[in-house]
Write a protein that binds this DNA or RNA. Sequence first.
RNA 1: GCGAGUGUAGCACAAUGGAUAGUGUAGUGGCCUCCGAAGCCAUUGAUCCGGGUUCGACUCCCGGCACUCGCACCA
Length: 595
Amino acid sequence: MSLPFNVASHLDTALRAAAAELGLTDRGFQPEVRVADPANGDFQANGALAFAKREKLNPRAVGQQLVEKLGALQEQYDISLAGPGFLNFRLKPAALLGWLQTYDSEEHLQTGAASARCGQTWIVDYSSPNTAKQMHVGHLRSAVIGEAICRLLAFSGATVIRDNHIGDWGTQFGKLIWAYRRHLDPAALAADPLEEFERLYKVGNTAAEADPAVLAEAQQELVKLQAGDAGSLAIWKRINDVSLAAFQEIYDRLGIRFDAMLGESFYNDKVGHIYRELAETGLAQPSEGALVVFHPEHPRFAKQPFIIRKKDGAANYASSDLATALYRAEHFKVDGIIVVTDFRQADHFEQLYLTVRKWFAAKNYRLPELHHVTFGSVNGEDGKALKTRDGGIIRLKALLDEAKERSYQLVSVKNPDFPEAERRAIADVVGVASVQYADLSQNRSSDYVFSWDKMISLEGNTAAYLLYAVSRIRSIFRKAGLDANNPMVAGDGGATMPVADAATAPESPQELALARKLVKFSDATQLATTTLRPHFLSLYLYELAGEFSAFYAADKVIVDDPAVRARRLLLCHRTLIELETGLHLLGLRTDLARM
RNA sequence: GCGAGUGUAGCACAAUGGAUAGUGUAGUGGCCUCCGAAGCCAUUGAUCCGGGUUCGACUCCCGGCACUCGCACCA
């Protein structure tokens, strides 16, 4: 019998069956299978400890009974009872080989994984910048983490809708349109539209502060826009169009393509409905002229209002976010909503989701899973928010350019003999990947310290280390004269066959360590997906690359013995597809032959 | 004031209540006639403080301390 994609689930099933035979299931036995420290085995089951404690039994005796019922597993695992009652499972080399033979391509890894969320639809709201402004370093984490989450969800079988909830209806448009009408520089607009819009906004803001008459005119511009004045709308549309085009250049570099761009303006005509429903269900009430929602059962939000309509009658982000939640539930019929923003909006989303739950329950709407995925800020090495040397905001475009340039310098030092075009192409991949990976390799909850040297100098847990492993593997196949995507070797009688068919089971300590790591790919992707924390996958890939590096330092791949050669080529190939699949799931490109 | 997040070696990070708290950098000592040394091997060094729960706590609970952030119409 062959192992499933997720080996831990195989053990879980077997342990539940054993527990049922022993009559432990009714008493609440849970196997608690997890990846083990390699010193102890491949997987461990800790369930006997908690169960024995609760039932006042001897944990080792419970463990022993379970082991005796697991005879059928002994073909594939060495099973042992250790310490106070841990069950340890170590895969036998033949079982490792079997798994590696089965999962032979990115496509088949995907097939193995795509069951958890099969048939589900999830919408992910990320990036979401304001129009008429440059994207800056503060927009990086939402875009990078959001995209990785989208890819992980899709890998687990979900249909994913990527939604860029752009800020295109803010109060900034009054001053901006005022200045646009009077101070537009067409040449500057053509050269760098966002730069020009930012300049115009500053012009409008400064003028409005200096002259109350200008302020009144700017406010009139906003009123005209919101009333649907054709001329104002034309300017507004032009600003948004060029903004989106500029954003798309960044998204192209980050490998992001949205399915929807439903910004705040899209929900403008949908908020009236929200006010009515929340008032009618008794959730919202007037307070100080505004319409607000209190949550009496909540220690803070009993007093801290959720303002859904301002006292001047205008909508705000709460109204718009409520309308957005309803639209996503009704129009897209989603099973889950994920919003990726920084942690400072945690209160807002807690209030929002509390309100949505009560409102949907009152109206009998189907409630999707609601997640607010937060992340910390990007700080400089001084621990404060990242700024340029003169204290300005770092633009995302400039940041990506610098990453590329630094990578180019480094590639040129390491490989002065490569043609310049190739060095540029490598820097293109490595530069962006380094920026993305620096973010994804670390737990999103904490702030992160932005350091060019750590990111690009490329030692330790970095994109370059992983990409280096990828290019080294490709190099081995090149040296052996084989197609890295589908390596074939000569078998008995001269016919060619896939390396997997010619391979024998792993033997050397390094072969075994690498093979053991490879079968845990599914646990890493699953953990990253269920927790919505991509760093679990990053960590796995880093450890995998480390196992590979140790393996090829110890065991020469291109040796004369055909069986040894085939099994080592198999390990190389499977490492390659897992590294590439994993890096693609994180949103990184891996298309380089050497570096 | 109320609340949230974060506190792990000099620095940067990891640890889904499990076994001896892992890694990277920096330091020290090894390894290129050998598939690429952006590499490999070895080694020194840490859980903010005080209680509690648990067979077992970086992890959960209580009380402090430090830093960051949020708290009536910006998103």
